[in-house]
Design a protein around this nucleic acid. Structure first.
Lengths: 232, 232
DNA sequence: GGCAGAAGTGTACGGCGTACACCTCTGCGC
DNA sequence: GCGCAGAGGTGTACGCCGTACACTTCTGCC
């Protein structure tokens, strides 16, 4: 598909084109269908050609993460720390929503890249600029965990909803009997959106709920002059 | 190795033995070296024999998760919700520490098993028994996220520490120059433990710090009679 | 015009999950 | 004791994967 018509010179590959093609392909067919072979085909090239631009698949994945991290807005300056960090993380979240596979890939990387370090470093810097101690900043970054990237692993990944409505009702009854507490929650949802089995939490709300809970907690500790030497 | 001496009848495989052998093998050689082939070899059996007991590798992984979830202590009764949940989650954490691969496998499962549902249901029940509204319980479970399982994804997975101390110093200088804020934190650590590059956060402390921050936040919202209709 | 190095190719290997046809062993009804 | 069904275990084979290695081809420079 990249193959030029006869006579025209093919534009040569480079690392950047490989990375962006990989991101686009993952967006289109899912990360599990992204292989060196499918990516090569996408680029109109033989699989081994890719290895002239990335060392191996691991490095390809690292590079894809870098592309996505590059989509996160830079920090707003002149804004209060809490708001600035909130905005930044919500920007990261938008990037993750654009590339649903990205969170899984980020989780899977054994070592951070320089670009990843840059992002983390700048988030740390935002807390420090807000007057947080080194000590508190450290623990607060850990508490944020993967939420700095704008995602949370879902605890209710949800069972596959059967298409057949009658079967769906049966599943729901089984659920209600075995898992009354989970059913309660699912029902609470249903109350709002009319669906029988929840299947529709408002992910954005959940994310912001937890994020704000954490940020509020951080603020409280900061105001109290918390240090790890004198916990709580 | 399971092969009996000649004459003695081989004890037949069953799903449970397959699952426990898989857990033990993953503990020993790491999850990335666990394949249907290596597991079969471990059991003294041909790879295809496993398929008589698990439908496929996905189901094997699900079953392994079930084994680990089975190691989590049952809820203490007659204890205040906060303490009971804290204990339960720390018990889950101990299970994860015994099987370092388990968190990655849990994250990777696309659908919860019945055993997983049982655990989640009982944790939800502990909040409800503590007087939490359905609404608040719902959001609080999301906020907990993967922490119900006793783990957090590390945000600082740490660069590969070069063995050579001189090289290590060079890496550290580079780190300090490019990532001053991260270096600060690493240095703060170093102050305590004498190592040049931190590399040693107290994971248990970080986990409990974040967990308690969340539980305290939950408690506050509960006491305030928080509902999603009237946020904050 | 010739040449070095970069870019792209072709072939091949070992590993993976697993479909499918087969054998073998075990317990049960007669 | 005999025969048979079905469960448990086997062997072969397929198509995918990442990628090593040796090669051709193309490009820009002297």
């Amino acid at each position: 598909m990249v193959q030029q018509v006869a006579g025209a010179r093919r534009v040569p590959l480079n690392r950047d084109r490989v990375l962006h093609a990989a991101v686009a392909l993952a967006d289109r067919v899912g990360i599990e269908s992204l292989s060196m072979r499918t990516l090569a085909q996408e680029l109109g090239v033989v699989p081994m050609a890719l290895y002239k631009h990335v060392a191996n698949k691991e490095e390809l994945l690292d590079g894809m993460v870098d592309v996505i991290v590059g989509e996160i807005d830079p920090p707003e300056t002149g804004t209060a720390w809490k708001c600035a960090i909130r905005q930044r993380i919500l920007s990261a979240r938008r990037a993750m929503l654009r590339h649903p596979w990205a969170s899984r890939v980020i989780e899977s990387r054994p070592h951070p890249t320089l670009v990843v370090f840059d992002y983390l470093n700048s988030v740390v810097g935002m807390f420090r600029a807000g007057g947080f101690s080194i000590d508190l900043t450290h623990h607060v970054m850990h508490a944020l965990g993967s939420r700095v990237w704008g995602f949370t692993q879902e605890v209710f990944p949800g069972p596959p909803p059967p298409a057949d409505p009658q079967q769906q009702a049966a599943v729901f009854e089984e659920l209600a009997r075995r898992y009354p507490y989970i059913a309660e929650i699912a029902l609470g949802e249903a109350h709002d959106n009319g669906s029988v089995v929840g299947q529709g939490c408002d992910d954005q709300f959940e994310f912001e709920f937890a994020l704000d809970l954490l940020l509020d907690g951080f603020e409280r500790l900061h105001q109290q002059g918390w240090t790890s030497a004198h916990p709580s």
